[in-house]
Design a protein around this nucleic acid. Structure first.
Lengths: 226, 226
DNA sequence: ATCTCCTTTTTGATGGCTCAAAACCAGGGT
DNA sequence: ACCCTGGTTTTGAGCCATCAAAAAGGAGAT
């Protein structure tokens, strides 16, 4: 890993990491859609990355991150989340605005500045969306299950992805369902029915569809971390 | 000015602005040296910039900024200085370290973030080196004369360029000659002799050579600004 | 008026990023 | 087994940044 990766290389690693959590192998077409770029472009970037042993490329059959690739991908996510924190904590952006802007300049930030930023922000444990900021140099970020996977009695802290559409974000806001908020599942209606939660003393109902777009850090994971 | 300028275009504008303050016309060779790049590279960038009417190019005879080019160059300097302030005020970098780092990512910062940063920093009037941060959209930054151009009795605030070499910076520090410090000229020895200053209650002597590397904002300019 | 020297511009080359369109293959249907 | 189709890779092209080396121009010297 002699020289720094370019912006598109970094973005590609991130996308592969996210897509490949369970699937393992990721197809270039998926990546092209995800990054909004022509299919040929992905192949070109993939080739350079495979050259550097950051991923395995099985022509016509998909790509998979190597250990080094996973580490690089996680580093990209770490940086992204630190920059988001900077945008929200220091510049006053709302949590749902930070995502968009961070992507536009995070790749050019020197490592040194990222490190100082992390310290200046007081070593935050999570980004404004509620996702954890991993330690440097790890190859995995703890998986966060969807809110809908919880059962009555479970308690968890929620995270809301930056990709959530604006109307949903507004709806969640009205119910106090903001990142890093603690919730307890009270009821889960059968047959993909809605979830009833206690949020900040209030009872709230969310549909299955919405509860699959929200992710959670459960108590056990929470404790481990302390 | 439809689309954003690239990094090298921005750097080139800045260099031409600085070189061309008095000379007017600047030769490409000078710019190649300044930016540490092959002469042909400068010609290529100059061509694109001339296309956009940011500068006049007289082949084999040098370039000159247009009005729009001056405005763009000043915007680049404004951004650079704001980022320097961020590095020093928010991340704790020493004033003489900020310069180097700022250059590495300032060009990728969205305008929007620059604006927010400026506000979050409390609309600073100058960069950590003591040079003024111009208002948006102007085509000139007030010229700062060298310290050596002052006469006994003159009072001024000093600015120290980022290009000053480390040993000189250390020497200046030992005498309390830091950016934005107020000095009064007490004596000026003839025949390019040294300058005697009062700095923070102490009498200090600096050679002509050093006094030409430091720049000043005189009282009159200072008052105007308030 | 010419010539020479120094500077500037042009000309290939490379590498990153991207696209559209052509060529290519893998796997499913027959 | 064979072929078709849809997704994947290649190819050809353009733009930016950069270099080394070749070509061209200017300006002063003869």
């Amino acid at each position: 890993m002699r020289v720094a990766l370019s912006k598109s290389e970094n973005e590609l690693l991130k996308s592969i990491y996210r897509q490949g959590r369970d699937n393992g192998r990721v197809h270039t077409g998926v990546l092209a859609d995800l990054l909004g770029v022509a299919p040929g472009t992905i192949t070109a970037v993939v080739k350079r990355l495979a050259e550097r042993n950051l991923l395995d490329h099985n022509p016509y059959r998909g790509v998979e991150l190597t250990q080094a690739g996973r580490r690089a991908a996680v580093a990209v996510m770490r940086r992204h989340r630190i920059v988001e924190r900077f945008l929200s904590d220091m510049l006053g952006y709302a949590w749902n605005e930070a995502d968009r802007l961070a992507g536009s300049f995070e790749h050019h930030l020197p490592q040194e500045v990222e490190d100082r930023l992390y310290v200046a922000l007081d070593r935050p444990a999570s980004c404004p969306h509620g996702f954890p900021i991993p330690p440097p140099d790890v190859a995995e970020i703890p998986e966060m299950p969807p809110l809908y996977s919880l059962e009555p009695g479970d308690v968890a802290t929620i995270a809301v992805p930056g990709s959530t559409d604006a109307s949903v974000v507004e709806f969640l806001g009205a119910m106090g369902l903001r990142p890093s908020v603690r919730v307890e599942v009270k009821e889960k209606h059968p047959f993909d029915g809605p979830l009833v939660l206690e949020v900040d003393g209030h009872m709230r109902t969310v549909s299955e569809k919405v509860a699959r777009q929200i992710f959670v850090k459960t108590e056990e994971l929470f404790e481990e971390r302390i």
